[in-house]
Design a protein around this nucleic acid. Structure first.
Lengths: 125, 125
DNA sequence: TAAATATTTCAAAAATTTTTTAAATACTAG
DNA sequence: CTAGTATTTAAAAAATTTTTGAAATATTTA
C-alpha cells in the first residue's frame, strides 16, 4: 500500500497574502541573498560583548592592544583573538607603531557604530 | 629585593590624543554601557545565518512555522529554537491562528531590517 | 649582541550554542 | 471522545566558539 506524502499546506488567511506576492517560492527566491550574507558576516564578527566594547572604544580613540585589553579586561591572546575576528569582518584595521600595534576602526566599522548610535534601539532587557 | 610592577604605558603619539579626551579611564568610563548592552543583545539574537534569513523572510511576509522551516530548510524543533531566540531579542512575535502559530516582525525587528537595507554594507567577502 | 617588550600564533581545554530525537501540548476535525 | 496536525519543550549529542598557557616574532633599548 502506497502512502501519499502530505503536501505543503499553509493556513488560508496567510495563503491569500502569499499569493498576492507571487507565491511562497517567489518570496523565498526573492530574498536578498547578498545582503543577508554580508549582514550575517558582520553580525557574526560582532557577536560578543567584548567585541562590541572594543568597537565602541575604538570609535572614541584608536588604541594599541595593551590599551584594548584593559578596556575589556583580558589577556593579550584573548584580546588578540577578538581583534583578529573584527579585522576579518572588516571593522577594524591595525598599523604598527614601533613595538605597538595601533588599532582603529575602518570606515565601515565607523559607519556601523554611527548606525547603532543613530538608531538607539530601546529594547527592554 | 622588591620588584616594581611595570605600570601601564601607552605609546607617546597616542597618549597625547588620549590626554585631550581626559585620559584613558575617562574614555573607558564614558562608553555608552546601555547602548552597548542592547546592541550586544540584538546582535547575539541574530548571529546565525538562519536567523538572519528568518528575519528577512518575515520582513516580506508573516509566516507560520511550517513555512519558516522550509525557508531555512530545517526541522520543526530547530526552527522553533531559532524563533524563540529571535523572540527573546524582541525581533519577532507570534500569535496563534487555530493550529498554526503565525510569526511576524515586531516594530523593532522591522526597524532593524530597514536599517540594514538602508545601509547595504559593501563588504568584500 | 642580549634582554626586554608588545603582540601574535598555536594547540589543548573549557564553555557555549546548535542540532537532534523523543515526548509533551493544544487545537481541529471526524 | 479519538486521531491527526502544528508546534514546543527537554535532554543528550554534536558542533562551534572562546579561553588559556606556552611558545614564536618582531622591534626596541641597553
Amino acid at each position: 500500500m502506497v502512502r501519499l506524502k502530505r503536501r505543503f499546506v499553509i493556513p488560508e488567511e496567510i495563503r491569500v497574502e502569499v499569493e498576492e506576492k507571487g507565491g511562497f517560492e517567489q518570496i523565498v527566491q526573492g530574498l536578498p541573498r547578498d545582503e543577508m550574507r554580508v549582514v550575517t558576516k558582520v553580525i557574526d564578527t560582532l557577536s560578543d560583548p567584548q567585541r562590541v566594547k572594543i568597537l565602541y572604544a575604538l570609535a572614541r580613540q584608536r588604541m594599541c592592544v595593551c590599551m584594548l585589553r584593559r578596556v575589556i579586561g583580558s589577556s593579550y591572546p584573548r584580546c588578540s583573538y577578538h581583534l583578529s575576528k573584527l579585522k576579518r569582518g572588516g571593522l577594524v584595521r591595525s598599523e604598527r607603531l614601533g613595538n605597538y600595534f595601533i588599532y582603529s576602526l575602518t570606515p565601515f566599522g565607523k559607519s556601523i557604530v554611527k548606525h547603532f548610535r543613530k538608531y538607539r534601539p530601546e529594547v527592554r532587557t
